[in-house]
Design a protein around this nucleic acid. Structure first.
Lengths: 397, 397
DNA sequence: GCGATAAGTTCAGTCGCATAACAAATGGCT
DNA sequence: AGCCATTTGTTATGCGACTGAACTTATCGC
């Protein structure tokens, strides 16, 4: 009943599409090279079928064969398969408060090229900033393209509300942008190049995607990712998949009301500016200095961080009670401050998460490295390739 | 990258499975009888394929053919197809604080049989209550089964935390149950009958499922369903699908902290007991009487409801900011009190939902009727049939 | 050097959908 | 009344994609 997602008819080709994705996913997700026989055993397909599918993937330069290594057991040695490096790539873009950048990833997850420009983009002019970004993208991607690299798509991370259905950026408070038609502004600089129009996404959501990939090997991938920068963003990941919400506006916890009487929001207690204000430090203080002051035992700083930690803990307990995930992943400035936040944060989680007795919530640090949204944006594009290599145009029908 | 759901290989039969579900869903979800040709046009399958699939569905008694009606336009008159009534059914069970019951639905959505027993199950003995439930189920389902009705499954709604992975009921505070192996207790009374083991689910989640089906025709089906009974439960529905969370423990908003300083939770402000206390009425007061007192303009009552409405509004704004849905659906006692809650509730939503300027949150009343969780439980079973008629064993391979 | 073993390929068989022609049943027009 | 246009549903025929089994290839161990 209650018809869920858009349902399409399944034709003969659908099998191939699905199974190509299945095989490719096994090769990409494997920790070490796998053989055709391994893939067959793991997927439940026959060796014959896997062979046929792998051949297509090799032809499309999504999978590469390594030279056989000396086998240690009897039998014909396996041909090791790995995701092809450098051939098919996704491009991640990001505009944030104090930097913008481009990062290019291939299917192995390695960074082929990257460029980050620092600057102050508060109250910036969208047209100008996006022109800079487009130029940077051209400079980075151009040489790759010239070498024959296939760019399957581009995704742009923005620190604001992007409507995934209707397109425009509604508002990015920290950039001072409002109702900006990002695609149109970018198209001015790119159409001539034949560059693909980027997908747009929220910075926290895309960073969480990078985090999901980074945590893939180590354990469960259902978590809330908290990204503390100037504001506080979050994203919900369930079984490795981002929860987007209806419009792509999920995870906006910065404005969560944590005090009904005063209407105080989380950001007013655990945001970067709020912490600095309460600590009696100027707002320009870098996070490192704040952390150092805390390490030195500065009482006002410790007090401010205790308040922030508790507020964050209560807010995240509320989130966990609503979406039922197993972990809290701290990213951005909150990762740097984790040592000082963790105590009150974990206490609040243990007290207020209703299922804590049966499924205690772990608090862990982000592993995705610097500029995770850049990585996540590129991964979003590559994920689409893996999910359906044919639809994304990389494999011939 | 980041492998999402469990991926299975697609074989030839997978096509058939998928397309059987697709066709059945079209017939079930259609507002009026449809022809094979209609289904073909709507799904993108050919008439030949649809014919073949429909024949199987008719044979499995999932779809029925009506006598052709006089056509109003040229051409051979269509054979109207409808979901078969009374042949294949889902059984919904529920144990709640002051009643338990059984409801049997067929694919048309009509109630074939139903029995509700009122009682006080606070601090009850699980074994005893479940024995009563099993007897009631036997009494209701037995005669149907004797008539040849096919029972595809049973689902049991409980007002507590049910681990959908490991099975047991962790805790149902208002029943006073804790770590109850519901399946084992039920099996004692049912194994002999050859009755299926029920799926277990949270009452609010299953009620939301009924609500999603009821709202199917009228508009968007992304909402938060709030079910105020003795406690306050909620469920998130996105595009018609329940958001279950990792363990099935999503939507636990009753314990949301809305006042950091005091640690006050939503239930302490908007729960039934809390409202009655603040209104100066005894806790046994029925909701109708409370509502009447409010209608009469009793100042303390109005004050209590204003407090509750605002608290609920803030809590739901927090939920909407996290999961990004379009509507709030009020069920249970909150539906009865809606007139008095709506004002402060809508004000809080407008003020605190960050995307309200672009996507205002609608507040609407539940439409699913009495005991929605009973309906939702039965629908859950039927949904599984529609999603994959073969896997659920109703259609021959 | 030969058998055991495992990887990968080839080929017939089967399943399920598409395509297209055909049969059935009705309204509209002369 | 009779014929055509129109639409529904059915009946071949073909093709794509997977399975299963036999076969080839390549290595290890004795």
């Amino acid at each position: 009943m209650s018809t869920a997602a858009v349902a399409r008819p399944a034709r003969q080709e659908s099998l191939r599409h699905h199974n190509l994705g299945l095989v490719l996913r096994h090769v990409v997700d494997a920790a070490r090279p796998v053989s055709r026989a391994d893939v067959a055993a793991a997927t439940g397909l026959t060796r014959a079928t896997v062979s046929s599918l792998v051949d297509r993937l090799v032809e499309a330069r999504l999978v590469a064969e390594l030279p056989p290594v000396a086998a240690q057991r009897a039998g014909r040695p396996a041909v090791p398969l790995v995701p092809a490096g450098g051939a098919v790539v996704g491009v991640g873009l990001e505009v944030n408060v104090d930097y913008l950048g481009v990062r290019v990833l291939d299917l192995t997850g390695s960074v082929l090229a990257e460029e980050v420009r620092h600057g102050d983009f508060r109250r910036s002019d969208p047209a100008e900033v996006l022109a800079t970004l487009a130029a940077l993208e051209r400079a980075v991607v151009g040489p790759l393209r010239a070498r024959g690299t296939v760019v399957t798509g581009v995704a742009l991370a923005l620190p604001g509300l992007v409507d995934r259905i209707t397109g425009p950026l509604r508002v990015a408070p920290n950039l001072g942008w409002r109702d900006v038609d990002v695609l149109a502004l970018l198209a001015r600089h790119e159409a001539s190049e034949g560059v693909l129009a980027p997908w747009l996404g929220n910075e926290a959501n895309l960073a969480a995607r990078a985090e999901a990939r980074a945590r893939r090997a180590t354990g469960p991938t259902s978590f809330v990712y908290v990204s503390g920068e100037v504001g506080i963003g979050a994203a919900v990941v369930l079984d490795g998949a981002i929860f987007p919400g209806r419009h792509g506006w999920s995870g906006e916890i910065g404005h969560m009301v944590v005090d009904l009487g005063s209407g105080t929001t989380l950001e007013a207690l655990a945001g970067q500016d709020a912490i600095l204000d309460r600590a009696g430090l100027p707002r320009e203080t870098p996070v490192g200095a704040l952390c150092a002051a805390a390490d030195a035992g500065e009482p006002r700083v410790l007090q401010a961080l205790a308040v922030a930690g508790r507020a964050l803990g209560v807010a995240l307990a509320n989130v966990v009670n609503i979406v039922d995930v197993e972990e809290v992943v701290l990213g951005g400035t909150h990762a740097v401050l984790a040592d000082h936040l963790r105590g009150p944060l974990e206490e609040a989680l243990a007290r207020h998460v209703i299922v804590a007795p049966w499924a205690p919530v772990e608090v862990v640090l982000a592993q995705a490295g610097a500029y995770p949204a850049l990585t996540g944006a590129a991964l979003a594009v590559l994920q689409a390739v893996v999910d359906d290599p044919v639809a994304s145009g990389v494999v011939a029908g």
